[in-house]
Every structure is written in structure tokens, then in C-alpha cells.
Design a protein around this nucleic acid. Structure first.
Length: 909
DNA sequence: GGAGCGGCTAG
DNA sequence: CTCGCCG
DNA sequence: CGGCGAGATAGCCGCTCC
């Protein structure tokens, strides 16, 4: 692991000639200096002949050996050091003074040192007031810590140690809450915005209470609950029964998990822990439509905790009430919980985004879109904004209260609107709903429209809750023993998950459930061609040894992992063919060519099937696989076979259904055999995924190398006999993937300069959620944007960065910042070029927007990074020591070469 | 006909 | 992808 | 330690608006 990281860094360092950069801040600093100074080629002022001539050389030599070149001019690359005396001056011009300046390194966690250093670097920016302000995480976890035992947050903020003060401190210096503020001028005012669960939890006291309840309950008595009915006093023999159940069957993990859930659920049901704040619970008349508020109150309760069992319990409780009073609303409730307007494969989407929503809220509340936008930057949640704005608006007459089906129906309507002025129509519908909203409804309505409920609920929570609720409706439930309840709950959860994974359609499952209960469900809802099932997914692994560990003495197989798009191909008895994506989206319109020629593939006697495979771009002339980027240029709608540019080949690797029989329970070895006996390959159209059943490291390594050489991403490793069924719900990650990245040094590592930041949303409110990074082009003397980055940070780092950059905000980009000024790319806040980050990326690609190494690989387009992630701050590097444009270009060319010939050779260096 | 946005893929 | 939380 | 949910990334196509 280290092994891979290290060499790469060394490579970079050697490019710069920066001796041992990164080891000892001080040492390296001085040595850099001395080396610079003593070097005869020392950069010298901007106009120095040296730098000029080297520039020229670079420009004229058509395709020089880039490595050598970089080595030739290490000083030039590392030369300029940031300094802010004259910010508009290109950095290079300041190079002459570099020896006097401690460079961008300054910033360490240590306080005093940092203050001093920061001052030197930015005498003009009033960094001072930022300094003493601690960074308080807006996150719930931290607030919880305070609340619970007052343990200090993970960040080593010095003045945070005293927990008792923390609350007061927060109140005292609200500005410190958010190390960043959207507009530097208008400092965040007193009002502390809390998008976080913690504060909610604190306010209601709920999360805590329920925790306690659970604890207490586990050990001793329980309380009667209005919902659960009167429960028999089981606590004494609870334990024995639990034991009994436990040893009964030590099956596979997933079952165990279900069991745990079941146990906990029983407890909570008995304790009434499932019902959020009784007072706020909304009831309605039997047979009426469920009030929307009943749902949003449930959401509110769920949002206030992160405990999964608690969430399940809350949801269960809600479903129970719906089952009791308005079962006909259940489907709509479920869809709203999942934030969907219908089954996935129908592909219905709202077609609403942030900007449209802002407009709608603005109109509905008579505010300006601009003011909403700036509030959004501050608060990070449109739902909250809608809610507070709404409060001010008192409507003259009250429209009828919203109900779950009415909201659901309107959402469906919205998703159906298309064509001219569709946006206006959508806005009108949203306004109408907003005006009928009360209480906490706007918050969740808006979040639903945004497509992000952000309360911690998804399929894997809804399904068990649904199961629990159904079981609890059993008239005998109250009479059952604890063990019986647990068992029933567990079984139900497992059945529902199983059924859902094969037929992911609530429209069918729920009615069947209502009619037959969980027992008859599996019989009623079966895998069926035409309805996409959840695909089996793979778990990433870092090493071949990890694979061997995991599968120990089970038989397994390795397959090529093709670089394309997952394709689940269905053929019905009547010959209809459909293709679905990994997310159950219907791709049939995208691949008419595949559908047309699919009849050639099945052998005699195959009447219906569901086949799992990968759809890959295919070069018919060279008969080879093309990269994903080529595939992605295919049209998606109304594709006519005649004008298809990118040809495609399907690589089949699994067979899930054949001639009326589901094969999901069969082991892979049998499914694979059936696949091979039921279908035949057609060159350039259909092939079986290449596989190898060997099980030694050497064999696998060789196979992996071959796969990579054949333009594949790596390998998939799957069990053949034991635990080898196709059951996504059971263990959705029972397959492993080994990526080539691992082989070839885990991608490229670059050192990049931070140019600007984007305000975070949701749980990143108050910090920068992402940053714009650049490389340094010394020919053009400018920083060129290369990617945005938003991942790889811990929360602590997020806080540190925000605090650090606050002292380096500038009101407009430096003239030597090169980027494309699109709204998407333009940072919310610009920074001085003061810090270098090490960033890792999977790939480099020609970018339509980024500017790195422009003119070096493509005359008008720059290069960007794919999947960049933050590794660490490079305090030992000044911004002009960042990876240079030439190096970026070189990386880009290098990867092409490597992928062309198999990538194994550049492991080290 | 281009900009902006939404929605999908990928990891 | 990464992270943090939960069980 | 694995499952899950949430927040990020690049890049492409398609629809709407201007």
C-alpha cells in the first residue's frame, strides 16, 4: 500500500528536483532555498534569459522527451513563491524575492505558528479575526458529543476541549460557526442555522430519550403502548427465548442481521419507542386519505436520529397506522418515502432542479430569487428556507390540507409535463402545493421535489419497515411470545426483501401483501421477464490477496470486468426484447441495434430469458473493445439503427431466468453452464465474458494482466457453488471486483493549487463542499483549472480547509487564473494561490471545460481528472511547485501508452 | 443555435 | 468514489 | 467490519428557454 504511494510521490518530487520534499517542512524549506540560490540555472527574475530560453525551447521542440525536460528545469518549476504584496502580479515576477518568503507552507494545525505564518503570507488580508475563531462542526455527531458526554470533537481545535463551554461559545460567536460565509461582507448574523439533526434531536430531546428507552428496555421492564396493544410480560424469559432463537440457526450474515432488526423492533414496538412524540402524532378518520402532515411528521422524527433501528421503528409505526386506517394509501406513502413517482423502470422523473425550485419558492413567497439563493448558500437547504419563508406568508384563505395521495398525484403530474413552457406549468403546480402547506410540510415537500429527502431512508429501510408493519397488523400479534414475534418479523423482512429484489414494483407487491400477507407474497410476486430485477453488485477489493482471504476455500471464478454499461436483457415468450440498465432504467430505445439482432443469439428451444451482461463499445474494424467514453457518446433516444455511429457488443456473464424458470437460487456454476448451452456467440455482437477458474495468486495476476491488456477495467471474482446464487437482496455485494488501478499504482497523484471554493450543502453547510484546483503552466505563467474536488476529505479536514482559506479570500480571480466561466465551474469564492494539495485521480481525460495543459495535447481543450480525491496538504510545496502543465500533458500521454500495452510496467518509479 | 439545466452513466 | 454512523 | 445513506466528481445527451 505504502509501497505504491511512495514511489509515485517520489517521482513527482524528482521532477521538481525538490529534495525530499514533504519530509521535514523546515529542512526542505531551507534546502530548497539553498538549492535554488546555488543553482546556476536559478530562475531569477521573470525576464531572465534562462526562463525565456527554456520557454522557447519548449515551445519549439515538437515532442521532446518530457521527462527529461522537466528534469532539466526543476528550478523553473518550483521557483516562484507566492506572495501577496502585489496580488495581481503574476507569480513568476515575484520569483526574485522567493527566498525571503516562507512560501505556502505556513499552515499547520498548530495555532500560534500558523498565525504568525499566515500573517506573513497575507499581510493584507485581515486574517486576524478568523484566527481565534474555532471551527465548530455544524454536524450532528459533534453536537451529540457535546450533548452526551462532552467529549471534544475529533478536530483538535484547542478551545474546544472544554465541553461545557461549547454551547455558550457557539452562541457567543455565531460567525465562527461557519468558517465561510457566502458574501464576505455580510457576515452571518446572530441566527444560527441548524440544518443538522443533532440540534433537532436536542430540541426535541427525542433521540436521546429513545436511546435510553432501548437500553432500559433491553434489560428490564417495558411499557405498554397504545399501538402495540397490550403486550404480555415477557421480559423475564425474554433472554432464554433469545438464546434459543440464536442457536437455532446460525445462518448467513444477512439473516443474522434481519434477526437483529427483528429483535430490536420487537423491543421498540413494545416500548412504544416506535412512535415519535405522541403529542405531535396526527390521526385521521379511518378510510380518509392520509394527511400529508402525518407523513412529514414521521420524516421529522426520522430526521432527528441516525439510529437505523429507530428509523425503522418510526417508519414501521407510520406504516402501521396507514395499514389500519387507509391501506389504499400505502403505495403512495411508500413512494413518497423513497422519493419516487413510480417504479424505477418506468423512468419517470420530476425534471425539476434547484433553479426551478428557487423560482417557485420565490414566487410563492413573494421573495426575490436572489435573496433565496444567498440564503441557500448560507443555510444549505432549500426545504428549510421554504419553510421559514412560508411562515411569514399568511394566505387569506386556507386551501384544503394536503394529503399523501394528493401530493403524490401532483408529483406525478409534474413529472408528466413536457414541452413549451413546461417549467412555468411545473412552477405553478409547486406554488399551488406550497400555498396549501402547513407546519413542516414545506420543508419535506421541497426536499421531495429536489429529489433528496436526506432523512436517512432508502429502500433497505423501507422494506423491513413495511414487513414489520404488516406482521404487527396480525390480530394474533399481541398474543405471540417475543420469540415468535421476532421470528415472524425476521421472516417477513427476508421475504419482502427477496420478493422486491426479484420484482421491484410496489404497485404489485403492496396489493399482494395486503391480500395475502407475507406468507403468500413470494408465490404471488415472482421474477418475470419484462420487469427488471435488481442487479447483483460487486464489492471493490484492493488486492488479489484480499480476494483469496474472502473466498478462502470456496470455489470461485474470475471474469473480465468490461468497461461499459450494465445491460440486463429480457426476452419474453412473445419474442419482445427489452434492455435495462444497472438502475433498472429502460434502455431499449438506446439499443435498437442490439434488440434487432438479438434473435441470433439464443439457441434452439430458448423461449424466454433474462440475461445479465455488459454492453461495450466495439471497434468493428480492429475488432477490439473501445473505452467507456466512446460508448457514452451514443444517442439515448430515438436511435435509428441506420445512423448508429458507435457499434456495441454484449458480453454476457450470467443467466437469471430461462424458459419460465427463475435461476436466481441456482449456483453460478449452473447458471453459467446454462448460459453457455443456451446461447451462442456472434462476433462483434455477442460474446461470453472471458473467465478463468484458477485460484492461485499467480493465475489470477496473469489473468488480470490479460484483462487489462484487452481494454478491460479489471476482474470480477465470483463464488461458483457455495453462496453463489443470484440474490441481490441477500448479499448484494457477494461478487468482488479487482480493478486495474490497483495494479498500475492506484492512479496518478498530482500536486495542485487551490483556486476557489464552492459552498457546501446539506451536511456540508458552513464549509466548502468542493474546491476548484489548478496546475501551473509556466509557459503561460498562469494557473489552469484542472478539476473540481469534493471527496477524500474527512470532516475535520473540511473544517480545517474552510478555516484556512477564509483568510485567503479574494474578491475576484487573479488575472493569471485560467478557467472557463460557466456557472457550474465558477467558484463561489476565490482564493489566493497559497496552498498545494496532493490529489489522486483514476484517469486523465480531455475536458470540455477545464484548461490544464491547454495547447499541449489538444489545441483548444484542456485536460481534467476523473474521480479526483483529496489525499493531503502539501505544506512543503509552494503553489508554483505544483504539478506543471507539461507534466499533466505527460501524465495524459503516459496513461495512453500504458493502457495500450498493458499497464503492468509502470508500477514503480 | 447556444446556454443552462436535468438526468443518466461511471468510479 | 469517500466519508461517517450504525449494528 | 459490512451495510447504508449522503455528498462529492467528470462527462455525455436531451429538453427548454432565450
Amino acid at each position: 500500500m505504502d509501497k505504491k504511494k511512495k514511489p509515485r510521490q517520489q517521482t513527482l518530487m524528482s521532477f521538481f528536483g525538490a529534495n525530499a520534499a514533504g519530509k521535514l517542512p523546515n529542512a526542505s524549506q531551507t534546502s530548497n532555498k539553498s538549492e535554488d540560490a546555488s543553482s546556476p540555472a536559478a530562475p531569477a527574475p521573470p525576464s531572465s534569459p534562462q526562463s525565456d530560453s527554456s520557454n522557447r525551447k519548449r515551445k519549439h521542440s515538437p515532442q521532446p522527451d518530457a521527462v527529461n525536460e522537466a528534469k532539466d528545469n526543476p528550478d523553473e518549476v518550483e521557483m516562484p513563491v507566492s506572495d501577496n504584496d502585489s496580488p495581481e502580479e503574476p507569480p513568476k515576477k515575484k520569483a526574485a524575492r522567493k527566498n525571503n518568503i516562507p512560501s505556502g507552507r505556513l499552515i499547520k494545525k498548530g495555532d500560534a505558528a500558523k498565525k504568525a505564518a499566515a500573517k506573513i503570507v497575507t499581510p493584507d488580508e485581515s486574517a486576524s479575526e478568523a484566527e481565534d475563531k474555532k471551527v465548530v462542526s455544524p454536524r450532528k455527531r459533534k453536537a451529540r458529543n457535546e450533548e452526551k458526554e462532552g467529549s471534544p470533537p475529533p478536530s483538535k481545535k484547542p478551545n474546544k476541549t472544554n465541553s461545557d463551554n461549547s454551547d455558550t461559545e457557539v452562541d457567543d460567536s455565531p460567525a465562527a460557526e461557519n468558517p465561510i460565509s457566502p458574501e464576505p461582507k455580510q457576515q452571518p448574523s446572530k441566527k444560527k442555522t441548524t440544518p443538522t439533526k443533532a440540534i433537532n434531536a436536542k430540541a426535541t430531546g427525542k433521540a436521546k430519550t429513545s436511546e435510553t428507552k432501548i437500553e432500559k428496555n433491553a434489560s428490564s421492564s417495558f411499557v405498554d403502548t397504545p399501538q402495540g396493544g397490550t403486550s404480555s410480560p415477557t421480559s423475564e424469559f425474554e433472554k432464554d427465548e433469545k438464546e434459543a432463537v440464536k442457536e437455532e440457526k446460525e445462518q448467513d450474515d444477512d439473516k443474522k442481521f434481519d434477526k437483529e432488526v427483528a429483535k430490536a423492533t420487537v423491543k421498540m414496538m413494545m416500548a412504544g419507542g416506535g412512535s415519535p412524540k405522541k403529542g405531535s402524532q396526527i390521526t385521521w378518520k379511518k378510510g380518509d386519505d392520509v394527511p400529508y402532515a402525518a407523513l412529514t411528521n414521521t420524516f421529522e422524527a426520522i430526521e432527528s436520529t441516525t439510529k437505523r433501528l429507530q428509523i425503522t421503528a418510526d417508519l414501521t409505526d407510520f406504516f402501521k397506522r396507514v395499514l389500519q386506517l387507509s391501506p389504499h394509501n400505502l403505495v403512495a406513502c411508500i413512494y413518497l418515502c423513497l422519493n419516487r413517482v413510480g417504479p424505477e423502470y418506468e423512468g419517470k422523473e420530476l425534471g425539476i432542479g434547484e433553479s426551478i425550485l428557487i423560482k417557485a419558492i420565490a414566487e410563492a413567497t413573494a421573495r426575490s430569487a436572489a435573496s433565496i439563493k444567498s440564503e441557500l448558500a448560507e443555510k444549505g437547504d432549500l426545504g428549510d428556507i421554504a419553510q421559514s419563508s412560508k411562515g411569514k406568508q399568511k394566505s387569506l384563505f386556507k386551501p384544503a390540507a394536503l394529503t399523501v395521495p394528493s401530493v403524490f398525484k401532483t408529483l406525478k403530474e409534474i413529472s408528466a409535463i413536457m414541452g413549451t413552457s413546461s417549467q412555468q406549468k411545473k412552477i405553478a403546480l409547486i406554488k399551488k402545493m406550497l400555498s396549501a402547506c402547513q407546519g413542516n410540510e414545506p420543508k419535506f415537500l421541497i426536499r421531495s421535489l429536489e429529489g433528496k429527502l436526506r432523512i436517512g431512508v432508502a429502500e433497505r429501510t423501507v422494506l423491513p419497515a413495511l414487513a414489520n408493519a404488516t406482521v404487527a397488523m396480525n390480530p394474533d400479534f399481541a398474543k405471540w411470545s417475543t420469540a415468535k414475534r421476532e421470528q415472524e418479523l425476521e421472516e417477513a423482512a427476508s421475504v419482502i426483501k427477496q420478493v422486491y429484489s426479484e420484482l421491484p414494483t410496489y404497485d404489485e407487491i403492496v396489493p399482494a401483501l395486503l391480500e395475502k400477507g407475507t406468507k403468500g407474497l413470494a408465490e404471488a410476486c415472482k421474477l418475470r421477464p419484462g420487469v427488471p430485477l435488481k442487479p447483483m453488485l460487486a464489492h471493490p477489493t484492493k488486492a488479489i490477496s484480499e480476494v483469496l482471504d474472502r473466498f478462502e476455500d470456496m470455489s470461485f471464478t474470475c471474469e473480465y470486468k468490461y468497461d461499459g454499461e450494465r445491460a440486463q436483457i429480457h426476452m419474453l415468450e412473445d419474442g419482445t426484447v427489452m434492455i435495462y440498465s444497472r438502475n433498472s432504467e429502460n434502455l431499449s430505445a438506446k439499443y435498437p441495434d442490439v434488440i434487432e439482432r438479438l434473435h441470433k443469439i439464443p439457441k434452439e428451444g430458448v423461449k424466454s430469458f433474462v440475461l445479465d451482461g455488459e454492453c461495450v463499445a466495439w471497434d468493428r474494424e480492429k475488432k477490439c473493445i473501445l473505452p467507456f467514453q466512446v460508448l457514452s457518446t451514443r444517442k439515448r433516444k430515438d436511435v435509428q439503427t441506420a445512423d448508429i455511429q458507435v457499434q456495441v457488443c454484449i458480453f454476457g456473464f450470467d443467466l437469471i431466468y430461462l424458459n419460465g424458470e427463475a435461476l436466481t437460487k441456482e449456483p453460478l456454476i449452473k447458471r453459467r453452464e446454462l448460459l453457455h448451452t443456451s446461447f451462442k456467440e456472434v462476433e462483434g455482437e455477442f460474446a461470453f465474458a472471458k473467465y478463468m477458474d484458477g485460484n492461485t495468486v499467480e493465475e489470477i495476476q496473469t489473468f488480470l494482466d490479460e484483462a487489462v491488456a484487452g481494454n478491460c477495467e479489471g476482474l470480477m471474482v465470483k463464488t461458483l457453488e457455495k453462496e453463489a446464487s443470484y440474490e441481490p437482496s441477500k448479499r448484494s455485494r457477494n461478487w468482488l471486483k479487482v480493478k486495474k488501478d490497483y495494479l498500475s499504482g492506484a492512479g496518478d497523484s498530482l500536486d495542485l493549487v487551490v483556486m476557489g471554493g464552492y459552498l457546501g450543502k446539506g451536511k456540508r453547510t458552513g464549509w466548502y463542499g468542493g474546491y476548484l484546483l489548478a496546475c501551473w503552466d509556466d509557459d503561460r505563467e498562469e494557473y489552469q483549472s484542472i478539476c473540481k474536488i469534493g471527496t477524500g476529505f474527512s470532516e475535520e479536514q473540511l473544517a480545517e480547509h474552510a478555516k484556512f482559506f477564509k483568510a485567503h479570500i479574494i474578491d475576484r480571480p487573479r488575472p493569471y487564473y485560467r478557467y472557463t466561466d460557466t456557472p457550474n465551474l465558477r467558484p463561489d469564492v476565490w482564493f489566493e494561490p497559497v496552498q498545494v494539495w496532493e490529489v489522486k485521480a483514476a484517469d486523465l481525460s480531455i475536458s470540455p471545460v477545464h484548461q490544464a495543459a491547454i495547447g499541449l495535447v489538444d489545441s483548444s481543450k484542456g485536460i481534467s481528472l476523473r474521480f479526483p480525491r483529496f489525499i493531503r496538504v502539501r505544506d512543503d510545496k509552494s503553489p508554483e511547485q505544483a504539478t506543471s502543465a507539461t507534466q499533466v500533458a505527460e501524465f495524459y500521454r503516459n496513461q495512453k501508452i500504458n493502457s495500450a500495452k498493458g499497464g503492468k510496467d509502470e508500477d514503480d518509479d
